[in-house]
């Protein structure tokens, strides 16, 4: 990141820069913290602090080793730390988010070039790494979370409207559905997150829940349970809409969101873990450059055809 004087036009730039986008994300994530702290006690704050600290320290260490200039103003490693903290269980042992943060920064971000070039969402990679090796610890919620009950094909005992307040079991940031929805609206209005991915993702996931309900209930309640349980809503706002790892073209973003929605529902039904958000996001990050070049090839062919007509 360098600080330059503007020499060539344009001399007026839009107020939105990468650091303001990161600040918006930080604000939205911080809004998610108070509710679980009230509900589960201050251990949640310790988990968040540990995760952010581990990401930040490994970022500084990596910059030191790679002899790069450490730029504080660009907070993407802090955002990664907070997203990891949000996906941890409320009473997680402190070394869990520290390890997830270290893996996220040292394996998914630094080796691929620092900010703009990581092919995978570092937070999703960190949480997936930790979920693979310590599944019981990552899914150790006080009372069984709705997602685990759904996994066994039973009907969760809470009614969907109860799940809005985030009092039932689940990861720190993902249970407070109303707060997540508010953050989503805030980020979309501030244009930090492109609405196309979130809307297509929720539409595709909802459609899959309607057409293939996992539990013997009316399709509508199955839709409500699927959308409100697990980290699907949180993932649709924070994980999958990371601009670096999602496609660049508008049509590509819509396609990406839709396929991700279908994939996450398939992984929930046939996968090994109750929360498949991180794995679905990682798979979709691998496919996103392919979607992009497919959309560009279609526009190039259409443009070539239009040139012949003239």
């Amino acid at each position: 990141m360098q600080q330059l004087m503007i020499q060539k036009p344009p001399f007026l730039r839009s107020g939105q820069t990468v650091s303001t986008m990161m600040k918006d994300m930080l604000l939205a994530l911080a809004l998610l913290l108070p509710l679980p702290t009230v509900h589960y006690g201050t251990h949640v704050l310790w988990v968040a602090a540990a995760s952010v600290a581990s990401c930040f320290i490994s970022e500084i260490a990596a910059c030191m080793i790679a002899k790069r200039q450490v730029d504080i103003s660009e907070l993407s490693s802090v955002v990664t730390g907070l997203i990891i903290a949000m996906l941890m269980p409320p009473l997680a042992p402190l070394w869990l988010p520290v390890l997830a943060g270290a893996f996220a920064v040292l394996a998914a971000r630094v080796p691929f070039g620092f900010t703009g070039n990581n092919p995978f969402n570092p937070a999703a990679a960190g949480v997936a790494f930790v979920t693979v090796f310590w599944p019981q610890r990552v899914f150790s919620f006080s009372e069984p979370s709705a997602a685990s009950v759904l996994k066994e094909g039973l009907k969760p005992n809470q009614i969907p409207s109860e799940m809005l307040w985030g009092t039932d079991g689940g990861a720190i940031g993902t249970t407070a559905v109303l707060v997540v929805a508010a953050c989503a609206v805030y980020l979309i209005v501030k244009k930090t997150v492109s609405w196309r991915i979130t809307v297509c993702f929720l539409a595709a996931a909802g459609l899959m829940a309607l057409l293939f309900p996992r539990i013997m209930v009316t399709p509508l309640t199955s839709l409500k349970y699927e959308l409100l349980s697990g980290s699907l809503l949180f993932c649709s706002v924070f994980l999958i809409t990371d601009p670096v790892t999602s496609p660049r073209t508008h049509v590509g973003k819509a396609l990406y969101g839709a396929v991700a929605g279908v994939l996450i529902m398939l992984m929930r039904r046939y996968g090994a873990f109750e929360q498949a958000a991180c794995f679905a996001v990682l798979l979709m990050n691998a496919v996103s450059p392919v979607i992009d070049s497919f959309v560009i090839a279609v526009t190039a062919r259409r443009e070539a055809r239009r040139n012949e007509q003239q």
Binding site: M1, Q2, Q3, L4, M5, I6, F11, R13, T17, V18, S19, M21, S73, E74, G113, F114, T115, G116, N117, K191, S194, P243, V244, S246, P247, R248, T249, H250, K253
Partner: peptide, 17 residues
């Protein structure tokens, strides 16, 4: 007002819009 912070391209697609 004339200083700008230059970051690598994060692929947000705003320029295409």
């Amino acid at each position: 007002m004339q200083t700008v912070k230059v970051f690598p391209c994060i692929g947000c697609g705003k320029c295409e819009a």
